[in-house]
Design a protein around this nucleic acid. Structure first.
Length: 907
RNA sequence: GGGGGUGUAGCUCAGUUGGGAGAGCGCGGGCUUUGCAAGCCUGAGGUCAGGGGUUCGAACCCCCUCACCUCCA
């Protein structure tokens, strides 16, 4: 029985624990009870690609619970950094509105991996709460799963009074990791934080898992007891485990006697700092107070994410982070009037507050500031274009009238204009809509918009059943391709055609072969699959590709050229060696490139995808701006230096933990086995990698980056070539430069300046020609004087001329001069060029109502077999029948005369 | 991976069924002047992102490419 030494009557604490002390106390408590203190895993979940962020203390122990992974301890305790944003756990929009919703929080927990079970878990929990944290027993409530008599009994034995132990159904008190796998009942501790705990009308059972937040859950103890199989049956686990979780912020609120997590010393200084930046006091129950809480919470999520290598971007977890950041920035701008970048100062405050327990924050301090600031600037630009578009949209409807929801939603979808901003702008125009209704209609419109454009692309190839069956029956294919590219005496263990296993493949057929051992590398880790041949004395097959549809099962896609292959046949497998060597070069070069990128650009560079093919390599990585020419040159130089060193490439198989300890680069979100292969280029690069590599770096030959592009915001892609490909490229470049130099009659090193000079000369010459032509055309007019050319057509002065020396724009300029001389009248100009003729008609302003230039051109252009049009004072047209230009020009007198007469008759 | 959008002077952006490439700021020169982003006059500065097509004619319409923004998986 756990006794409650701290008497409940003295609710006022002797001295209040800080958040840091509460965390430390928790961890030390369990350390003293045989638990190993395990550091928080990064927010980027290693070993679990299905998870956007670490979101529970047990994440990093998942494989330990399922028995896949073994650790040298059976008891652990941790404070885990978690982010929950969106999804079923937490709606981003709730953060700041309630006392306890957060994007970022810390989860305290103790874990037993098949060691102790319910009894100890319950005793420890109660002991810690009552005797260390000194919580009064009469404020505590306990819940158990409805049929878990064992737990209920244990709580009472430990000191709880029986009426304080409540039973709940599966929704509240049964936990499972997924649809299958370990699961079990859980037990929660709740805390009554209202006044007068002795009054049973106030501190009552209905409040547990009930309405309001007088009573809140503070600790969840999960008893992993069963294994759920696909058909839903539960089998008891041989070694039941314990997984508990207590939110640090909640615990702090309880221990510090405040009702809101935002009033604990973990968050309040950030809220106050936001208030200080805004220059106004924090009033909890106000719009401004809400904004300050949002900023405080989101600043923590932001700082911790960036420190763990998650940067704002437009996909996956990066996108979630961007949403979080922008939400904070928006609220700061809008509710608090913080127009200039401010958020990076709040995140910096987070670094200051949390760098003690989380030194990674201090290490990334400058990076955090830079990234946050640049996101603030980018978002500022997005906001102002969004506002402009919104203004433009509002201008299309009468004042005070509601625009189409679909148009508003389009604004959000296309320009990222926050919906709050849209709603508020509407309000400023006197259109007020209840927030709920607005959100609902907005969502509808948005859904409609996105459904209209969405196509069902989810044709993700399910792993064919045949592979799963084969993998189960055959186990892992032994891969011999590290040592050699040729293997005699391999045995065919399965053949597949289409979706089915077959007994044999015959000449002319395509299908798949599985061997017991193979030198063929299956596509993995970005490296493409090998090609080559598989032969027996009587038959040949060409290997077109090699894949591993199920981990460990190597499948050769083949076309049988001669004879037949049956199960049990002994074959010789020969990989296309030249191609494989090219792949080796590119793969090792990829590692060198990765290391060089980190050295030149910074440690924030992380691999985001890669492709290793025989003719090139492609590498995607996180970086927030295009590479400069100097950076590219520096990277190339570094990589080539390593190649010239010609050091032997080493591979080693070791346990994952040891590899990570030795500083090997691993990919987050990638699944690794317990024993991993580590590839080292001594003194430069160390990475986990299953691919095939060169023996020494010198084998790679020349290395050259040929492309740098953006693949998404925050992610860049470079492509490079090595070996013979690079040499071919250099030769092409050389040829190109030589051809240019000889064409331009200059030395190669003077090419840029020669071209620049040529361009300048060309520009000047063009301008000069233009001026001269114009002068010539207009000058002709002064010499001969316009008088002889001008004819009177029904009272309108008309000047017609062919000027084929001028281009279209020269024609317009000449018409200016001539029309000015004419003062009142019509100018018709024609020109011939490139087998076409064009016409231009100008009418002086005073005649605009009498003769329309467009009308004239519409009558003249058909003569040339074309069309024309324009404005009343200027019109252009033309047609392909250039030989009829004179005819058209002559016809213009009659046309204008007719129009002039019609007009005067009407006038 | 998919949808939507943008790209015009150094910067911020206009540009009307397709018919003369513009404004403000900045920059050069001149004038005026001691007053708060000084005023007036004047000038330079453009591959309308790149390529192809339609057309008598394309910044504008169609197709491809690139860069950037944005929403979603």
């Amino acid at each position: 029985m756990v006794s409650n030494e701290g008497k409940s009557s003295s609710f006022a604490r002797i001295e209040m624990m800080t958040g840091h002390e509460i965390r430390e106390t928790f961890l030390r408590f369990f350390e003293e009870r045989g638990h190993v203190r395990v550091p928080s895993s990064p927010l980027l979940p290693a070993n679990d690609p299905t998870l956007l962020f670490a979101n529970a203390g047990m994440n990093q122990f998942k494989d330990v619970f399922t028995g896949v992974e073994r650790r040298p301890y059976k008891r652990a305790t941790s404070a885990q950094k978690c982010i929950r944003a969106g999804g079923k756990h937490n709606d981003l929009d709730d953060v700041g509105k309630t006392a306890r919703h957060h994007t970022f929080f810390e989860m305290l927990g103790n874990f037993s991996f098949g060691d102790y079970f319910k009894r100890e878990a319950i005793e420890y929990a109660l002991d810690l709460l009552l005797n260390v944290y000194k919580l009064p027993l009469e404020r505590l409530w306990f819940t158990v799963y409805e049929t878990d008599d064992e737990a209920a009994e244990l709580w009472v034995k430990a000191g709880a009074s029986p009426e304080r132990v409540l039973r709940f159904g599966a929704k509240e008190n049964f936990w499972q990791m997924g649809d299958t796998g370990p699961c079990g009942p859980c037990s929660e501790i709740h805390y009554y934080q209202g006044p007068d705990p002795h009054d049973p009308t106030k501190n009552r059972a209905e409040l547990v898992n009930g309405p309001g937040d007088e009573t809140i859950e503070i600790w969840n103890l999960v008893f992993m007891q069963y294994d759920r199989s696909a058909d839903g049956t539960l089998t008891p686990l041989p070694a039941p485990s314990v997984d508990t979780g207590a939110g640090l912020e909640r615990l702090a609120a309880v221990l510090q006697g405040v009702r809101s997590n935002f009033d604990t010393d973990l968050l309040r200084p950030l809220v106050d700092f936001a208030a200080e930046l805004a220059g106004r006091p924090y009033v909890a129950d106000s719009h401004e107070g809400f904004a300050m809480r949002v900023i405080a919470d989101h600043a923590r999520a932001t700082a911790f994410s960036i420190a763990d290598g998650i940067y704002p971007g437009n996909e996956g977890r990066n996108y979630v982070l961007r949403k979080i950041m922008r939400r904070a920035i928006y609220h700061g701008r809008h509710a608090l009037g913080l127009d200039r970048p401010f958020f990076h100062r709040v995140t910096d405050k987070v670094v200051e507050m949390m760098r003690g327990p989380y030194p990674e924050l201090e290490a990334a301090r400058a990076l955090i500031e830079r990234i946050v600031k640049s996101e603030e600037e980018r978002f500022g630009a997005t906001l102002s274009t969004g506002l402009q578009k919104l203004e433009a949209l509002l201008a299309t409807v009468p004042y005070g009238e509601m625009p189409d929801y679909k148009e508003l939603a389009r604004l959000y979808d296309t320009f990222g204009t926050p919906r709050d901003l849209i709603r508020v702008s509407l309000e400023e125009r006197g259109i007020s809509i209840p927030e709920d209704e607005f959100n609902l209609r907005f969502e509808e419109a948005l859904g409609e918009l996105q459904r209209a454009s969405a196509r069902s692309v989810d044709a993700r190839a399910k792993t064919k059943e045949v592979y799963a069956r084969l993998a189960e029956r055959l186990g892992r294919t032994e891969f011999t391709g590290y040592e050699g590219t040729r293997l005699a005496g391999a045995r065919i263990v399965a053949l597949i055609r289409g979706d089915e296993e077959v007994a044999a493949l015959h000449a002319g057929e395509e299908g798949e072969l599985v061997l017991d051992r193979t030198p063929f590398y299956a596509e993995a880790g970005g490296q493409v699959g090998d090609t080559g041949v598989i032969v027996t004395s009587r038959s040949d097959a060409r290997v077109l590709d090699t894949q591993a549809p199920v981990s460990g099962l190597i499948v050769h896609r083949v076309r049988v050229e001669r004879g037949e292959f049956k199960a049990g046949d002994e074959v010789t497998a020969q990989v296309d060696e030249e191609r494989r060597n090219a792949i080796r070069r590119n793969h090792t070069a990829t590692h060198l490139l990765h290391a060089a990128l980190r050295e030149v650009l910074g440690a924030h560079v992380k691999q985001a995808g890669s492709l290793v093919a025989p003719n090139r390599l492609r590498f995607d990585f996180t970086h927030f701006q295009p590479l400069t020419a100097e950076e590219i040159a520096e990277i190339e130089r570094l990589v080539n230096d390593q190649i010239l060193r010609n050091v032997a490439v080493q591979t080693e198989i070791m346990p994952l933990a040891e590899a990570l300890r030795s500083g090997a680069m691993a990919l987050f979100g990638e699944k690794y086995g317990e024993r991993v292969r580590v590839l080292t280029v001594p003194g430069f690069s160390k990475e986990l990698c299953g691919g095939t590599h060169v023996r020494a770096t010198g084998d790679i030959g020349p290395f050259k980056i040929v492309r740098d592009e953006a693949v998404a915001s925050g992610t860049r892609r470079v492509e490079a070539i090595t070996g013979t490909e690079a040499i071919a490229r250099f030769q092409e470049d050389e040829e190109l430069v030589n051809a240019l130099a000889s064409e331009l009659r200059t030395a190669r090193e003077r090419l840029p300046e020669t071209v620049e000079k040529l361009q300048e000369e060309l520009r000047r010459a063009r301008r000069e020609v233009e001026e001269l032509r114009l002068k010539l055309a207009a000058g002709g007019a002064t010499v001969t004087s316009t008088d002889g050319e001008v004819r009177d057509c029904g009272g309108v002065r008309v000047l017609v001329r062919e000027v084929s020396d001028l281009d279209a724009s020269g024609l317009r300029q000449l018409s200016d001069t001539l029309l000015a001389r004419l003062k009142s009248g019509v100018v018709v100009l024609g020109r011939r060029a490139e087998g076409k003729a064009s016409l231009l008609v100008r009418v002086s302003a005073d005649l605009r109502s009498t003769i329309q230039a467009g009308q004239v051109i519409r009558e003249l252009a058909p003569i040339l077999g074309g069309r024309g049009g324009g404005r009343p004072d200027l019109a252009e047209g033309g047609g392909p029948q250039a030989e009829k230009l004179q005819e058209a020009l002559s016809a213009s007198y009659a046309v204008i005369e007719r129009l002039a007469k019609t007009a005067s008759a009407q006038g």
